[in-house]
């Protein structure tokens, strides 16, 4: 049997929570104060470091994807945080740019900075890369990828409606936690148009190397996309049963290697 201190420390294997931290008197040891401070700094940076859409555009160009860059109606990060309504709407310029690219598309990606530029910067392009083989398999006509700054999820509705897409996947930086400043969320909405509520969407969250992997997330999203187009809906009535498909082998044979 382990001595008590080691037994306590052994609990840390069971949870990502910050347990068995030790103490200095009643307080945290210096080591833990600094570890927490660093995690908080990274989470704050994820919110506030300016989004660099041109880098995402370059990553996507390397995948042979066309891109369009737009901004929301929120002119600054400060206003973006205070006025969620502005982040849900396109700027007038953005509306015009997308209207000019209107076509008949099956599927649109909207890459939005959301609350973590870190997440989008690092994880959006690899997720799209992992999804492309699935979309190709389904023979879907892709709209140009929209890259949106100061954007919230619902901006994807207006963007995809302007482009004329049947289904939209908004890839957006999630509210950063201390242990997950790079967490990407993906929101899938069928027949996107302005004024939809979140009950009309399906969400796959915590997409990052330390959470849900790109390959796994891509499989889930592709499964949901197939069901959404087949059943003409997303939201509370479309339950994510992709795991069943994976277990039954439907996925295994179709799980492609992510191509760069």
């Amino acid at each position: 049997m382990l001595p008590p201190d080691e037994r306590w420390a052994a609990l840390t294997r069971l949870t990502p929570a910050r347990i068995a931290l030790g103490r200095a008197g009643a307080s945290l040891p210096t080591r833990e104060v600094l570890r927490f401070g660093l995690a908080h700094a990274q989470a704050r940076d994820a919110v506030h470091i300016p989004f660099r859409p041109e880098e995402v555009a370059a990553d996507l160009a390397a995948l042979a994807l066309e891109t369009v860059q737009v901004e929301s109606a929120a002119p600054s990060r400060d206003l973006y945080l205070r006025r969620p309504d502005l982040g849900r709407r396109l700027s007038p310029e953005g509306q015009a740019v997308l209207a000019a690219r209107r076509g008949a598309f099956d599927f649109a990606f909207v890459v939005a900075d959301g609350l973590s530029s870190t997440a989008v910067q690092q994880n959006a392009a690899p997720l799209i890369a992992a999804m492309l083989p699935f979309l190709k398999q389904q023979d879907l006509k892709l709209a140009p990828v929209v890259i949106a700054s100061q954007a919230r999820v619902a901006l994807g509705d207006e963007a995809a409606e302007a482009l004329g897409a049947r289904l939209v996947a908004v890839l957006i930086g999630e509210r950063p936690g201390l242990s997950s400043p790079d967490s990407l969320g993906a929101y899938l909405t069928f027949a996107p148009r302005r004024g939809l509520s979140d009950a009309m969407r399906n969400c796959v969250s915590n997409i990052r190397p330390g959470g849900l992997t790109f390959e796994h997330a891509a499989f889930k999203l592709a499964w949901l996309a197939r069901q959404a187009l087949r059943r003409a809906l997303t939201g509370v009535d479309l339950k994510d049963e992709s795991e069943l498909a994976l277990v039954s082998g439907e996925g295994a044979s179709r799980l492609p290697i992510a191509s760069k």
Binding site: T15, A17, R18, I19, E32, F36, E174, R175, L178, S180
Partner: peptide, 11 residues
């Protein structure tokens, strides 16, 4: 634990 809620992502 450690003021960091690993489920709800807040402090």
């Amino acid at each position: 634990p450690g003021a960091d809620d690993v489920m709800l992502n807040y402090q």
